[in-house]
C-alpha cells in the first residue's frame, strides 16, 4: 500500500508518504503559504522513497475541524491528486490521528480562536467526537491523569495541567504519520471514496 497523507488543519502543516509500512514526513509551522508547500513536498518525498505518483494506491486527508482556509488547501490538494491520478481519497477528522499518535487514551485540542478549541477525547475508542468547546469543558472529558496533544493543548497548557493532564511531546505535531497509517488501513478496507464525495468538517459556522 502506497499513499500520501495531508493535514493542514493546524498551524503546523504536514505531508506523509506511506510506502508499505515505511513512512516519511515533511512538517513546518506556517503562518500562510501552505499552498506553496504541499505539492513540492509530495514530489520530494516521492523522489526520496523512489515512488512515482501514479504508483500511489490512494490518498488520505484531514478534513477538519481546524483552520477553515488551511483545511481547504489540504483538501483541494488531496482532491486534485485523487482526481488526476484516479485514486480513492479517504477523509479523516483532523483530531483522530493526533490522538492516535500519542496513544489510546488522549485528549486532542486544536486552537479554534475566540477562547475555544476543537476537541475530541479518546479512551480506546473516540469517547467524545470533535466539538467546538472551551478548554475548560474539554478537560473534564477524561479523568486524570491523561495525555493532551494538539496545538490547543499548548495554548491552554495551564488548563490542561490544572485538570491533571500532561502535555504530549511535540504536541503541535500534525500527526500525518498516524494519518497515513490509519489511511492505509482504511483504504485497505475499501473505505476510500471518489474525491467529490469527501467533504470538510467545519463544525463551526462562518462569521
Amino acid at each position: 500500500m502506497k499513499l500520501v497523507a495531508i493535514d493542514t488543519s493546524g498551524p503546523v502543516i504536514g505531508v506523509a508518504l506511506w510506502c508499505d509500512g515505511d513512512v516519511r514526513v515533511r512538517t513546518e509551522r506556517v503562518a500562510r503559504g501552505a499552498e506553496a508547500r504541499l505539492v513540492p513536498w509530495i514530489q520530494e518525498l516521492c523522489a526520496e522513497m523512489g515512488v512515482a505518483l501514479p504508483a500511489l494506491d490512494g490518498l488520505a486527508v484531514g478534513v477538519g475541524p481546524g483552520a477553515f482556509t488551511g483545511v481547504r488547501v489540504g483538501m483541494a490538494t488531496a482532491a486534485g491528486l485523487a482526481m488526476s491520478l484516479d485514486r480513492p481519497l479517504w477523509g479523516c477528522d483532523s483530531l483522530s490521528p493526533r490522538g492516535a499518535r500519542v496513544g489510546p487514551r488522549s485528549l486532542v485540542l486544536l486552537d479554534a480562536r475566540k477562547g475555544r478549541v476543537y476537541a475530541a477525547a479518546f479512551d480506546g475508542t473516540m469517547t467524545h467526537p470533535p466539538a467546538d468547546v472551551t478548554a475548560d469543558v474539554a478537560v473534564r472529558w477524561l479523568a486524570a491523569p491523561f495525555l493532551a496533544t494538539g496545538e490547543g493543548a499548548l495554548v491552554y497548557a495551564d488548563i490542561v495541567r490544572a485538570a491533571g493532564g500532561t502535555l504530549a511531546d511535540d504536541a503541535d505535531d500534525p500527526a500525518v504519520d498516524a494519518l497515513a497509517r490509519l489511511g492505509a488501513a482504511a483504504l485497505g478496507r475499501g473505505q476510500g471514496k471518489p474525491p467529490n464525495e469527501v467533504v470538510p468538517t467545519y463544525i463551526r459556522g462562518f462569521s
Binding site: 505539492v39 505518483l53 477553515f68 488547501v73 490538494t77 482532491a79 486534485g80 482526481m83 488526476s84
Partner: peptide, 18 residues
C-alpha cells in the same frame, strides 16, 4: 484569498498528478 486558494491548490495538484 480563501477563494483563490481552493482553485490554485486544486489546479497544482491536478497538474502534478497528470
Amino acid at each position: 484569498i480563501g477563494a483563490v486558494l481552493v482553485g490554485l491548490s486544486f489546479a497544482k495538484a491536478l497538474a502534478a498528478g497528470w
